[in-house]
Structure formats: C-alpha cells, structure tokens
Amino acid sequence: MDSVDKDKVTVIDATKIDTSKYKREVKREDDAASQLKSTGLLNTLVYAKDRAEKRDQNVILALVDQVVNWGRLCSIWPVTSGLACCAIEMMSMSMGHYDIARFGSEVFRATPRQSDLLFVAGTVSKRMAPRLKRLYEQMPEPKWVIAVGSCAISGGPFVDSYAVLTGVDKIIPVDIYVPGCPPRPEAWLYSMIQLRKLIKEEGVGITWGLDK
C-alpha cells in the first residue's frame, strides 16, 4: 500500500454521497391497489379479514371453530392411492420407523368416501389424470391434497414426455407441495405438520359453504 501515491487517491466519504438520484422510481401505491381491485382479490381478502374478526368476537363460533378444527387436524385419514415411486415412500412413512400413526393418520381408508387427504404420490400420466380427478371428486368435504414429488408438482424428470401431466395442480387444487424425487419420509411428515397448521387457521364456515 505504501507504493501508492497518496495524492492521486481520492478518499470518498460514503456518508456524503447524494443517493437520491440513484433511487429507483417507485410506482405509486394506489396503482398497485387499483390493480388488486380489478382482480377482485382485494375484496375477497378484506371480506375474509372482516369475517375472521367477527368470528373472533363471537365466543361461541370461535370455540366451535377451534374444537372442529382440532378434530380435523388430529385425525386426517389418507386415501390408499399410490401412483408410482413415491407410493413406496408413502408406505414406509406409515411403517414402524416414521410412523404417521403418531399423528392419528395411520387409518389409510381404501374408499375415498371416508378419507380426508389425497396424497398425489408419483407421476400423473395423462391416462391416469381423469381417474385421479374423479377420485378427488368422490371424497367428501372437507378434503385436502398434498402433491408429493417433483413429478406430481411439475412433471419432474418426465417433464418432456408426451404421456405425463406436468403438474397435478392443473386438474385438482393442491394445498401442500413436497419437493424431492422421491421426498424422504421426514419431508412427508413435515408436510403433514404444515397441513395441520393450515387446518388450524381455517374457519369452519369456509368448508361448510356458509360463506357463499
């Protein structure tokens, strides 16, 4: 450093730089708000917030919500449906080592009529897609869907195949996505915990159709 000529080095004081001219121009807020309004999303959000506040004020409804949600989140019965590789990891999740039964979910019902949760475990081929949609429609409300593995999320390694649906969310609504190929059972368990959180926040009225 000694060899550098000190006269030629201009020392810059960072605090004295006028940063105002470098600032990017921010769009006006009402622009974003008006965009939201035009999509109708804002109204829905405001309505949901209103209703949640009202519900919290109403002691009885809040209590009912809590009890029912507690019941739902502790007894999620999945439907026995495996599509491909991930189904084997689904089995190993319900076996001794990982034991989904701890969360009260070991009751794998074979019939969709008695189940709450659909694991889309594996590649959804285009031939299978209508059947999967039908399976989803046969389940009674309230129902949840967890898309497991990169195939179910986006097509995964088979994304450029002519026979594979790229993402199950094109045919049925998905609540939780679990990436991996296939995801480890720990990731499945984490998705179950996330689903429990989701159900805990949910108002009963939403799934009973009272808000419509």
Binding site: W70, G71, R72, S75, G104, D116, P140, P142
Partner: peptide, 10 residues
C-alpha cells in the same frame, strides 16, 4: 377426535 371429525364431515 375421530368422532368430532366424522361429525363435521360432509
């Protein structure tokens, strides 16, 4: 809990 859930099922 199973009972509560089945009660609130469609």
């Amino acid at each position: 809990i199973d009972g509560v859930k089945l009660l609130s099922k469609e």
